[in-house]
Design a protein around this nucleic acid. Structure first.
Lengths: 332, 332
DNA sequence: CTGTTAGCGCCTTCAC
DNA sequence: GTGAAGGCGCTAACAG
């Protein structure tokens, strides 16, 4: 059990003081070249690496940024992990990814752990509806919420799929659909309610029916296993469905089990992209947005907040509607 | 900017020494009940939480376990994140998830970061072929490899899909397929080569042809975008394909673009499950294994190794072949 | 330019 | 059963 070399070992080996070694490892330019070289040699020979723990203790920061994901297995946000990791690394932080597994309980625990770890910042992809007691848990740690929820205090990055979703809706209406459903995860915030009323209006204007009651509009992933087959079996069943990407697998499974083909018997639009939407036959129409741009904005905002700068208002991020093969004319 | 309370603040408030506070926070039983209560009250009033950084510095450990994933967006392993996180949390560690994004360069950097962080242990889901210089990077930090690669020194958890894959192959042969392809990620290790020769033999015994040359058998995800359409267009094209789950999306897309229907024109088996395999129409036959059991074994092994216990030989983990709708009779 | 020193917050002997 | 003190590895302020 040979201990790792410390700054003292290096200092002794290079015959200098620990302070000098510290200056070298921190890139201080005011070190005599000869001494610097001697120190660097000693570092190399000993295989010395400064302990981030001691360093962080001294500096009063952890050097860690936490990224709490509502659900790692949901590609919509987990696709941003690589980008976020890279950006934080460049800024000199280590990214800790945590998964809430769609469980509010776990989300709380994750944030508590991060607070206990004294992380320097948090990127939060919150469960919805957002838990308003979260800011208390975080006791002043800078946070950026992704996507931004209106109820939330603090920096946020808004990604609104409103335009793209409405474009999808128009596509359905133009294809003659008159019974349209909208599936989204339980208990969404204000933005979604706005979207809902905009959709409602547009549907009425087209003389169509919005197939939606509480159990269809807002549902949990588990509930959907029962609710979706029922929806597709019902008398006034929809001929077109716009669904949150998290519910797309369940919807497609329900359609398949009901013997329905897309888009012959059912038109489908996914709100947010996924591998499934890309690879399905036919490819599923979906809304999408610029992931890279979004994550870099999130990290920039977080870093700004960490520097104590006030956060500007969240700008909306544009989203796009991809027209592919999953919307067809309404069945007769 | 009010600093967080330290152990000193608590000691002062409770009129005791810091040592006593420390004993309380560490659940030392040799503390007088009255004092203990006073300390606990002070802790609550101040909202005190011991700094893990200082604690870890003192204890000479980081309290962190790293989980390096070859690719977060690959559900086969990212599905284990929740389980692994839970298990490490129960063992008193914080899990740091990192993503290598299928890039050897990033994998190296991640491991270097973890080494610099002085993590107490690493769960590694390595890129293949495995980088044999990795143990050097980790300088004695306990590691468990998942899945275990033969070339690897250290604890490992083996998950062999051999049996299930052979079962899938038999299914194809029984359905009259005579030209069969096997798609897997570039540069696999010894286990896979064994599997390959077993398949070869079984195929010959059945009088069938193994459609495989270097470019089809081992391919990168990017290369597949060109290679797969070419494979499906070729003269002696396969009528059945067994594919690593990472290549399933590309295969299905290529088939769709070629106007082929599964299983009418092409039978497909995915090695490892995915949402796509579940939700596709028809559902894709696949091999699978017991994720929970596997991750808990990985963590147990890691914890054992961290305690200095020798690791036993890796037992094989059973896998299963799920018969669904993607294998049909060979086209005439 | 470089050495010395005083802690960062905590745990852990060692006395009492 | 509890207080006092030293030190984990490092950095930053201050001398020299």
């Amino acid at each position: 059990m040979n201990m790792r070399p410390t700054i003292k070992d290096v200092a002794r080996r290079a015959k200098v003081a620990t302070g000098t070694v510290s200056r070298v490892t921190n890139g201080d330019t005011t070190v005599h070249p000869v001494i610097r070289e001697a120190v660097e040699a000693a570092i190399k020979e000993l295989g010395y690496r400064p302990s981030p723990i001691a360093r962080n203790l001294r500096r009063g920061r952890s050097g860690i940024i936490g990224f709490v994901l509502a659900d790692v297995t949901n590609p919509t946000y987990s696709a941003m992990v690589p980008e976020v990791q890279e950006l934080t690394r460049e800024a000199g932080y280590t990214l800790v990814v945590m998964d809430s597994g769609m469980d509010p309980e776990r989300e709380r625990r994750n944030l508590e752990t991060l607070a206990a770890l004294r992380v320097d910042g948090v990127v939060l992809n919150p469960l919805l509806p957002v838990d308003t007691t979260i800011p208390a848990l975080l006791q002043g740690i800078p946070v950026v919420s992704l996507p931004g929820v209106p109820e939330w205090e603090g920096a946020k990055v808004r990604v609104s799929s409103t335009d793209a979703t409405l474009a999808g809706l128009d596509d359905c209406l133009a294809n003659g659909h008159r019974r349209i459903a909208f599936l989204t995860i339980k208990g969404l915030g204000g933005t979604q309610r706005d979207l809902l009323s905009m959709m409602r209006e547009r549907i009425r204007a087209a003389g169509a029916t919005f197939v939606s009651d509480a159990s269809w509009t807002f549902m949990s992933r588990e509930a959907s296993t029962e609710a979706l087959p029922a929806m597709l079996r019902a008398e006034g069943r929809p001929t077109a469905v716009l669904t949150a990407s998290a519910l797309l697998p369940e919807l497609l499974i329900a359609a398949r089990d009901a013997g329905m083909k897309v888009p012959r018997d059912l038109s489908v639009i996914s709100i947010a992209a996924s591998t499934l939407a890309d690879a399905y036959d036919p490819p599923i129409n979906c809304t999408t947005f610029d992931h890279e741009h979004l994550s870099s904005e999130a990290i920039c905002k977080l870093l700004d907040t960490m520097r104590g700068e006030p956060w500007g208002e969240a700008e909306e991020h544009a989203s796009f509607y991809l027209r592919r093969g999953s919307v067809g004319p309404a069945p007769a």
